[in-house]
C-alpha cells in the first residue's frame, strides 16, 4: 500500500485499522509543525516537547474515532489535540510545583523573544507576519491574554486571578480580542483562511 499518495483523512482511517506505515506517514507530514508548536508551549523545553510529541502520536494511534473533514481542516484538528495534550502536561507540572505563579516578567521576556522571532520569520511566513501585524493592534492586556491563554495554557479564571480582574471582564476581553484580531486579519488577507 502506498501511503504517500493517501489523504490525511485516509491515513487516519488506516490508523484505525492498525496500519503502522500510515502513522509513520502522518509523522513525516506533521512532526515539524507539532514539534515547533509544542516547543513554544513548553517555552523551549526539548524534553517536555518530546514527551508531548510522543503523546500526540500515541493519541493518533489509539484513536477509535475516524477524523471527519466536517470538523474542519485536519491540521487544525491535529493542533487542537497537540494543544490540549500540552496544556495537560503544563498543568500537571504546575500542580507539582504547588502554586500558579504570575509570570508577567516571564511573559515580557516571551514577548521580546517573539518580537525577535517575528523579525526572523517575516520573509519566511507571510501568514505569520500578518498574524503578528494583527496582534500589534491589540492592547497590551489583550496581547497578554492571548499569550497566557493560547500558549501558556492558563484557564480564564486563572488569568482573572493573575490580572486581578473579575472573570466577566476577562471573558469580554477575550471576545473583544478575538473580534479585533479577526477584523485586522480580514483587512490584511481579505478573509480568515487557514492554509499552508
Amino acid at each position: 500500500m502506498v501511503v504517500k499518495s493517501k489523504s490525511d483523512e485516509e491515513l487516519i482511517e488506516l490508523i484505525v485499522q492498525n496500519h503502522r506505515p500510515a502513522l509513520e506517514e502522518l509523522y513525516d507530514r506533521y512532526v515539524k509543525l507539532i514539534y515547533s508548536f509544542s516547543l513554544k508551549m513548553t517555552k523551549g523545553d526539548t524534553e517536555k516537547t518530546k514527551e508531548i510529541v510522543q503523546l500526540v502520536f500515541l493519541r493518533l494511534w489509539t484513536t477509535k474515532r475516524t477524523y471527519s473533514s466536517e470538523k474542519g481542516k485536519f491540521v487544525n484538528w491535529l493542533l487542537s489535540i497537540t494543544r490540549n495534550i500540552a496544556i495537560d502536561h503544563i498543568r500537571k507540572e504546575q500542580k507539582h510545583q504547588g502554586t500558579v505563579q504570575l509570570e508577567i516578567n516571564e511573559w515580557q521576556q516571551m514577548q521580546d523573544q517573539q518580537t525577535d522571532d517575528v523579525l526572523q520569520q517575516v520573509s519566511k511566513n507571510l501568514l505569520k507576519q500578518q498574524l503578528q501585524e494583527a496582534k500589534r493592534h491589540l492592547s497590551e492586556p489583550q496581547q497578554r491574554l492571548i499569550d497566557l491563554l493560547y500558549w501558556g495554557g492558563y484557564s480564564l479564571s486563572e488569568i482573572a486571578e493573575l490580572e486581578q480582574k473579575p472573570l466577566g471582564t476577562i471573558k469580554s476581553r477575550l471576545h473583544q480580542t478575538l473580534k479585533k484580531l479577526r477584523n485586522y486579519f480580514n483587512e490584511e488577507t481579505g478573509g480568515v483562511r487557514h492554509g499552508k
Binding site: 512532526v31 510529541v53 487544525n76 519566511k124
Partner: peptide, 21 residues
C-alpha cells in the same frame, strides 16, 4: 473560530531531531 485557530501560526518552525521518530 478560524481566528482562534490562526493563532497557531505564531510559531517559529524548528528542526526536529532525527532521533525523535
Amino acid at each position: 473560530q478560524a481566528t482562534w485557530q490562526m493563532l497557531s501560526y505564531d510559531v517559529e518552525e524548528t528542526d526536529v531531531p532525527e532521533s525523535l521518530k
